[in-house]
Design a binder for these strands. Sequence first.
DNA 1: CGAGAACTTGAGCAGCATCAAAGAGAGTGG
DNA 2: CCACTCTCTTTGATGCTGCTCAAGTTCTCG
Lengths: 216, 216
Amino acid sequence: MLRQAAEFPQRIRATRDLILAGQRTPGPLLVLDGWLGRVQLFSDGRRQILSFLLPGDVIQDAGTFQPVAPSTITALCDAVLCSAPAPEDEGPREAYAASAALDEIYLLRQIARLGRMSAYERIQDWLSEMHERLLLAGAAGPESFPMPLTQEMLADALGLTSVHVNRTLQAMRRDGILEWRGGTVRLRQSAATNGARARPMPEAAISAFRKALLAG
Amino acid sequence: MLRQAAEFPQRIRATRDLILAGQRTPGPLLVLDGWLGRVQLFSDGRRQILSFLLPGDVIQDAGTFQPVAPSTITALCDAVLCSAPAPEDEGPREAYAASAALDEIYLLRQIARLGRMSAYERIQDWLSEMHERLLLAGAAGPESFPMPLTQEMLADALGLTSVHVNRTLQAMRRDGILEWRGGTVRLRQSAATNGARARPMPEAAISAFRKALLAG
DNA sequence: CGAGAACTTGAGCAGCATCAAAGAGAGTGG
DNA sequence: CCACTCTCTTTGATGCTGCTCAAGTTCTCG
């Protein structure tokens, strides 16, 4: 089914909105390539990226009930999507539930990150998460992964300014735990580094689904 | 069905954990009284309250799929729960989906709050949200609402220190927009105050469900 | 080669944290 | 009814983290 759906890819250019908050939601979509973000705009210009949608992620909006989209979804770089099979069918239903469960975990992690981590920790933790997720989707190597975002987007996701993100990245490079050149990131886990988190991750149970979904 | 389930209330005392992250989830629960919080603890003692569970809220964990709880749930004050009807039944299914949709909206709002609002704005916005939610649940008056939390809990939810929460609350009192005495809050919406947010709220479509759920 | 976007750098400041200690309630037991 | 204790709130002094403003510098791409 997935292979069939992928026959009709839909392209979207960077900075374009895919879905506007408050609009009726379209059917479920699958991200084939590129990164999108759920975004909240403030009337004074502030912007918060709420979560990321990476290749392999499904856009479904909460249990397929959602009458309207709870947030705007923007393409953070050029991206390719296709429509995903209807959740009514028996097979995919479990997959959708698993995907929703994962999404929730990432939202909770984002809250803990913004609420209780320093800038340095936020960037580290966020890069780790992106790497994990891309690995699950088969879109990253074990040592490095693609990073199509600008430092300003990173700032909008992590509740910082781009200036401070820049300085913090430099500190990480100086500490020898980060390389970021030409859209590719290599992050070393400085062992002592991440003692702060005690993360609940039912990933083992769930990753199987993601892989199946992506096999197509 | 709800009335029947409520025949067997389960009490839990403040500071006790109801569910531990990583544990198997029990069946869905309904909060009858008291406030609970989904909590993330850091190994160095930092704590982040990820979200709140108020009277009328359902604890179901993401589309009823979740194999294990994604976060610890703690009673923030003495609380009363009962088990909720199984989501397999045809009637409640839609109600569960609506509840999950609402939960997601509150998580997204919490992210925007932590990422891009000042301490003053966070407290204002959070108090507004609690008032709205309690109104939906019929657990608040139009002008004021009960607030059983300490300033330190508020700090843990909003990514601040209790000292700074205290000072900010005093500023709000000085500005005449807040009264908080004896566990009751009265918040004046200083019109100019909330221009910053452009919130997506499919509440109209959803509140009906909450009311129905609570009628019992 | 020019122009825009992205990244860097510096100086100065503000918001919020930290540390420490002093009130103010609220419940308990004598 | 009054210590007593515990938790919660309040206050002060001080300093770090991250923001603001402003100006380069490098990169990308047509």
